[in-house]
Amino acid sequence: MAEDVIYKYGHLEILPTRMEEYIKQQEMNEAERERIVKARNMHLDWYHRHFAYEVLKPPEGEWEPKA
């Protein structure tokens, strides 16, 4: 079941209609969502440094960074 999602303010979000019956969304603004995203990225970055000193980049020519 691949779902349609909303793309808003640079992030994906569930269709609010899926959160109407059993479990409901809470009152939350964009700043709170930004806080969550920022903390997630901090945490994931930290995990890489925890296991190895450096994350190796893909071999040259194998990946073009997105514009």
Binding site: H48, F51, A52, Y53, E54, V55, L56, P58
Partner: peptide
């Protein structure tokens, strides 16, 4: 020893 590098492809 902690690894110098990691790669996940």
């Amino acid at each position: 020893p902690k690894s110098e590098v990691e790669f996940a492809g």
